[in-house]
Amino acid sequence: MKWGKKQLTVDENGQSVTVKGTDGTVYVQGTSDVTVTVGSYSTNVDTSGAATADSWSDYAVDKA
């Protein structure tokens, strides 16, 4: 299965899977016969605790 930003969750055949909550709520209706059951679901992500990316200038090489 693949997960990704702005990408549907898909099975090994490339079909979107159904994402369903433990309470029965269907968050994403897929075309695959695969269903993923989740305890919670959100389209928002809190990245406030994430590390910062290295700066490109740390790896840039001066042109000769």
Results as ranks from 00 to 15, higher is better:
D11T: 00
S32V: 04
S40G: 08
S48A: 10
K5P: 09
Y27S: 01
D23R: 04
T25P: 07
T22W: 01
A60N: 10
T37V: 14
Q7Y: 07
K5F: 10
T47L: 10
T35I: 10
D54T: 15
G4W: 02
T52Q: 15
V10L: 08
T22Q: 06
G24Y: 05
K20L: 03
L8F: 12
V28M: 06
S55C: 12
D23K: 04
G30F: 04
D46I: 03
K20R: 15
K63P: 10
G21Q: 01
S16I: 01
T35K: 07
A60G: 14
G14K: 05
Y59V: 06
T22G: 04
L8R: 11
T47M: 11
Y59W: 09
Y41G: 01
T25F: 01
V34L: 12
K6L: 14
V26G: 08
K20A: 04
S48F: 04
V17C: 11
L8E: 13
D62T: 09
T31N: 13
V61H: 05
A53H: 07
T52N: 15
D23C: 03
V36T: 01
G39D: 01
S42A: 05
K2C: 12
K6T: 14
W56L: 15
M1S: 14
W3C: 08
V34T: 13
D54F: 09
Y41Q: 02
Q15P: 08
V61G: 08
E12D: 12
V38N: 00
G49E: 12
V26M: 04
T22R: 07
W3V: 11
D46E: 02
A53K: 08
T35C: 05
T9D: 05
G30D: 05
G39M: 02
D62I: 07
L8V: 10
Q15W: 00
N13L: 09
S40I: 00
D62E: 13
Y41W: 07
G24C: 06
A64N: 14
D58A: 13
A51L: 14
S57G: 12
E12T: 13
V38G: 00
G4I: 02
G24N: 06
T18S: 14
M1N: 14
S42T: 05
V17F: 00
S42C: 03
G39L: 00
V38C: 01
K2G: 11
D62Y: 04
T9E: 13
D23T: 01
T37F: 07
A53N: 12
